[in-house]
Computed example of a mutant assay.
Amino acid sequence: MNISVEQDPRSGAPSKRRAKPATDLPPEAARLLTRLGEPCAYARPDPLAEGSLIVRRGGDGISVGSGRFAAASGRALAAADLAEWDAAGTRLTISTAGRSRLRRQAAGGEAAFAAQHRDLVVEQEDRTAEPVLRNAAENPLAWMVRRRGRDGVPLIDAACFEAGERLRRDMTAAALLPRMGSEFGATRVDGGGPRDPASAADHVIAARQRVRGALDAVGGDLSGLLIDLCGFLKGLERIEVERRWPARSAKVVARIALGRLAEHYGLEREATGPERARLRLWRG
């Protein structure tokens, strides 16, 4: 059994602590973990059946049932740090370790432990670009929209997440960020390339105008943060270190900046009436 060495919190002297054994989950607990891994899924105690949990999934006011499990399965996941309860103890959600375990299971074989640090998604910067495979685990916006506070609410809502993603796509299309991998639309050695270079240049100019308009709307005091966060995908801790900000302050400023950006794009969490209803989360 592995032994880890830590400092005693009272005396500061090294102390030995037995590491948690990596035991297999009971079958029902494993199924519950899979259900909690679905988008916006959570479990709560069943008010009609003591000792049971009801799993719900969905968001933005839409909730769909996803099964009933024994409360012991939830306790098993929480004890293994694969799920966590909110401060009120009424909502059980999957933890970061739980998602890593699901990714290991999905990958299997030699790639299992590498997959736990990846969250691969297919993205398309615009309608004319080639789809790109990205690791969402490296995107701080994806981390913020999945990370929940003590109240069970994500650090940023879907509107703020989409606003940050739209700015990143425009910055990439405007050639303001370094491209990772091959650029299939660029001129090739054989003289090939985009069929209409002029239209390609217009596309870049239009993207730069959208970026400039968005940053001007947010304000110069917050635009630099959005460039680092959405464009260069710098984490919150790194931003705090580089800017010499207090710990956990970047999270608050990022919320304000993304909120202003969402207002600029006209993104809202919910419509406020037929005359003001907007198309939400439209990918242009």
Rank of each mutant, 00 (worst) to 15 (best):
G37W: 01
L36C: 11
R56K: 13
A49W: 09
V132N: 03
G59R: 13
V122C: 06
R68A: 13
L133Q: 06
I94G: 07
G108I: 04
G98H: 01
P39K: 03
I62R: 15
S63W: 12
S95N: 00
T90V: 05
R127E: 13
E123N: 06
H117K: 12
H117I: 06
R35K: 15
E110C: 02
P26W: 10
H117T: 09
D119F: 09
H117V: 09
A80L: 09
L133Y: 03
R56F: 11
R127Y: 10
Q124L: 07
E84L: 14
R57T: 07
N135L: 01
L33W: 01
P45K: 00
A137S: 15
L32I: 04
T93D: 06
L77D: 01
T34P: 00
L120H: 10
G59E: 10
W85S: 04
I62S: 11
D119S: 12
F69Q: 04
S63M: 10
A112C: 06
A41Y: 03
P26A: 15
S95E: 01
A70V: 08
R44I: 07
R44T: 13
Y42L: 07
V132M: 11
R134A: 13
R56W: 14
L33E: 04
E38S: 11
R68E: 11
E38H: 12
V121Y: 03
E110Y: 00
R127G: 11
R99W: 13
S52M: 15
A43F: 05
R35W: 02
P47I: 07
R103Y: 02
D119R: 11
R68W: 05
S66D: 15
G108W: 00
A97F: 11
A88S: 11
D119C: 11
A19M: 14
P45N: 04
P47N: 00
R99P: 08
V55M: 03
L92R: 05
G37Y: 02
